[in-house]
Design a protein around this nucleic acid. Structure first.
Lengths: 220, 220
DNA sequence: AATTATTTTGAACGCTGTTCATAATTATGG
DNA sequence: CCATAATTATGAACAGCGTTCAAAATAATT
């Protein structure tokens, strides 16, 4: 599909508009289904029924169900990112220095925690979904996820000013991964679903302790 | 299936022996398949072919493929546990006190990391596999996983002697989860597969920093 | 209005895990 | 040791999945 159909000019064709509407409806339905029944609840036939089209119609506007999942996941990541920027912007006239940086780190981590706890299924879909063997994730997808690591790099700069950017990136990734791990296992029913306050306490504790440790390590 | 078949006495019956052999063969084959092709590569028909039996025969010795997966996962957890005890036993005449405790924590975390890196697929299967909706994991499964948290509680006792057991348990779980998170995201090809030395550095860094922070927090 | 291009359709395909009537095998009793 | 009963192995058949594709319906063009 390199070239557009010949009939498509600058203005939308009737068919093109229908096409877009159908795609949007499918993404919406998929999003709702994932949140309600998880990734495994997403079925082509049921999706077609919900949207009011034939099964085959799905594959006119979307190459795969995977394609649909990626689109939903991209939305989820965007929403998560919005939450993180909001959490980051909340602190402006805070204490500067180490305590301020620690505070920002904790806020970011808690924002992540709250998002995951509130939209568990959609959030899990981002990590649970793996591309069918042979194919690989779209390019933008990896970038979308890696970008989130950047959010904690800035506070880290205050915490360990002398670190090289590369090292700071590594530490940021570690910190994000650690928080992610706590949330993943904390929301796992298979293990034991932790109540949200406990989860928040865990995250706060870990980020605070790690941050303190990092600062101390840098100071000496 | 509450009662055994009437024909089974104290000594093994011919059929019973075949039964056990088939089950073992299936578990072995499943284990190899999972390590080679991941959880998604496990197919009933292919399994039957590898073991040399009919598809239906599988369901004579195993209720589900899920059942098989749980058995393989139990093996994996047992092997992991063996690695952890070994790592814990390595340190005997080490420095006592905080430094010793930190060292033990780092060793445990690295043992976990190495295990995951070496047997990535089987290790992932433990966390990736979720029971089909309606059913739930066997009782022993949760216990098997939770038991691993206990391994870090002892070193924590040296680090924060005055903590109540419940709090120590929470911190232990947090620490394990954090390390788990680093390893999970570090081994994710979808994100960017980190080379093992980098992974070990990340883990060492985090555990050391967190441990230091925890000790400092306890001291003040 | 007639012709051509496009899109929508749902039966059909290939692949899953799982079942079940039937065949083969094993255990039992005379 | 064979005849009968109980058990086990078999693989075709079933239900459900994602995906395709010839044909019908619709839209665009002449």
């Amino acid at each position: 599909m390199v070239s557009r159909p010949k009939t498509a000019g600058i203005s939308e064709t009737k068919a093109g508009s229908r096409r877009r509407k159908l795609r949007d409806a499918l993404v919406d339905a998929a999003e709702r289904t994932i949140e309600a029944e998880g990734l495994r609840g997403l079925k082509a036939r049921e999706l077609a029924y919900k949207v009011g089209c034939a099964v085959g119609a799905i594959y006119n506007v979307v190459t795969d169900l995977d394609d649909l999942i990626y689109t939903v996941n991209a939305r989820t990541l965007a929403q998560l990112e919005a939450q993180l920027t909001e959490a980051g912007a909340t602190v402006r006239l805070e204490t500067e220095g180490i305590d301020g940086a620690l505070d920002r780190l904790v806020r970011l981590a808690l924002a992540y925690t709250d998002f995951a706890a509130a939209r568990t299924q959609r959030w899990r879909a981002v990590f649970d979904h793996q591309p069918q063997p042979g194919r690989s994730s779209p390019e933008w997808y990896m970038a979308d996820q890696l970008r989130l690591f950047g959010y904690v790099e800035e506070p880290l700069k205050a915490l360990r000013p002398q670190d090289a950017p590369q090292r700071r990136a590594l530490i940021a990734r570690s910190l994000v991964s650690a928080v992610h791990g706590i949330v993943v296992l904390g929301l796992e029913e298979k293990l034991q679903l932790l109540p949200r306050p406990v989860l928040r306490e865990q995250v706060t504790l870990l980020v605070a302790a790690t941050g303190r440790g990092l600062a101390a390590q840098a100071a000496k």
